[in-house]
Structures are given as C-alpha cells and as structure tokens.
Write a protein that binds this DNA or RNA. Structure first.
Lengths: 123, 123
DNA sequence: ATTACTGTACTAACTAAATAATACAATAAA
DNA sequence: TTTATTGTATTATTTAGTTAGTACAGTAAT
C-alpha cells in the first residue's frame, strides 16, 4: 500500500487524509491496531515527528485512540466512520462541481463530459 | 472577483491555477491586457514577488506574454486555450474518480451519488 | 527484575515559500 | 524632456513544515 505523498501540500495533511480514507474504505477495520508511530513513519518514508503530528490530529477528531503503551487503535464507533464517509464523499463531489463550474461547465455538462471520458477510457 | 487563496498549498501555485482557470472560462479574453504585477499583487493581497513568480510560470507555458514595458497580455492562440480547457477538465474528472474510488465508490456509484447530491441541493 | 516496545515530548537545524525593501531599464504619456 | 508606469532583478528576513536526534514514562513479555 503505497503512500504516494507529494511535495505540493503539507505531508502531515496528506497522511491524515490517507488514513481517514483507508478507514472509511474499509482497509482498516474498527478496533484494528495500527502499526507503531515508528513503523508507520518508516513505511511512509517520513520523520516520526511528522507521523506523530498526523496521528495526534486523527486522535483529536476521535477517529483513532491510543492506549498509552500498547498502541493505537481505530475507533469502534462505526456510525462515526459511516458519517465521515458520507462527509468526505460530499466534499469530493462538491469540490468536483465547483472546479468544473469554474472551468465553465454547468453541472449537467460536467456529468456528461465525465461519462464521455469514462467511455473513452474503457473502449 | 475574489482570489480565495488558502494556506494549505503554495500560493504561487494557486495563483497560476486561478489565472489559468479564468482564461479558459472566458473571464479573460485572448489579447486582453492584464493588470500590472503590482496591481494584481494588491488585489490578491500577496507580495509582488509571489505574483511575479506565478506570472513568469504562466509565461513559460505560453499562456501569457509580456511586452517589456507596456504590460502583460493573454495569448491570442485560441487553440492553445481550448486545448488547456480540455486538459484541465480531464484532470478534474480523473481526480474526482480517483478520490471516489479511494473512498470505496466505483465509477457508476460515484456518478449516481453525485446526481443524488445535486437533486438534494436543488430541492 | 530486565528487556523491548509503546506513545509522547523537546530542542536544534534545515528548507522552501513568502514577505519586505529596493533598484534598474524601457517606454508611453505628459 | 520629464514623469509615471511597466516588467524584472536582487538581497535579506520571516515563517511553516520537515528532519534529526534524543529522552522519558508506562507496560507487556521474558
């Protein structure tokens, strides 16, 4: 599972989004134990401090919790996860429509162009 | 016309995208004279150096050109503008589908959820 | 008890982006 | 000719993000 971090945006933000996404997509399951800060940092090829910063933020929002010395775990609150999934999807959709509108495409045009693009890819 | 710059990404990149977008959306027209570096910087509330950096990059790609002392102008190459519009639209579409896929939605699901979201907004 | 692993905290150094403050050459307008 | 405006260039400073290195306290396993 590659981390695919780019340098155009703060890395700790990209890490937060990556882990959030993996949770709502079901790659991490409720109650799962996360690798340690040091392991995650190595896997993502970033400094442990950067990983720690991202994890602290995920903890602040309640998506993960830490058990002082035994490790860090995904929340077991499935409703929270489901709600987050809806929120993130809505954000992505809204962002898409705004972008397309700024380029000069109305909502229906945007959808049509997308369907056309998909057909073009799979043919 | 607000600039809406956020601090999550390099400002000069956001400026580049903003001006690109305004050109392909027809807010700026081919041959139009742009405001001076200093005026643009003031309008966007950034340092002139930052604006200059963004404009230099736009110039490097050929989208604008500068006439040494009389100012900066939008390219008159309408084909280039049209091509850029298609490219940007394709990027936005691809990015959208990738994001949704990472959240666990297949292409068709993504489209359906988007249509559903639109109906929910306009009702 | 000792060992190894956990999260956490702290300080220093480095880098890229952004700001600040000028300066200069070219030209259109006065 | 003078003035104002243009793009452009240069140097210094500040700030946020990142890295580097180290340290400490708690706990499960040995």
């Amino acid at each position: 599972m590659p981390w695919n971090l780019d340098s155009d945006r703060p890395i700790f933000l990209q890490i937060i989004e990556k882990i959030q996404t993996d949770i709502v997509a079901g790659i991490y399951h409720p109650g799962d134990k996360l690798p340690s800060v040091r392991e995650l940092a190595q896997a993502a090829a970033v400094n442990p401090n950067t990983m720690q910063k991202a994890l602290s933020e995920l903890e602040r929002t309640g998506l993960v919790y830490s058990q002082r010395t035994s490790g860090r775990f995904i929340t077991e609150d499935t409703k929270m996860i489901q709600k987050l999934k809806s929120e993130l999807a809505r954000e992505v959709i809204t962002e898409f429509l705004e972008h397309m509108q700024k380029l000069g495409f109305e909502k229906q045009e945007a959808i049509e162009l997308m369907e056309q693009t998909i057909r073009g890819e799979t043919k």
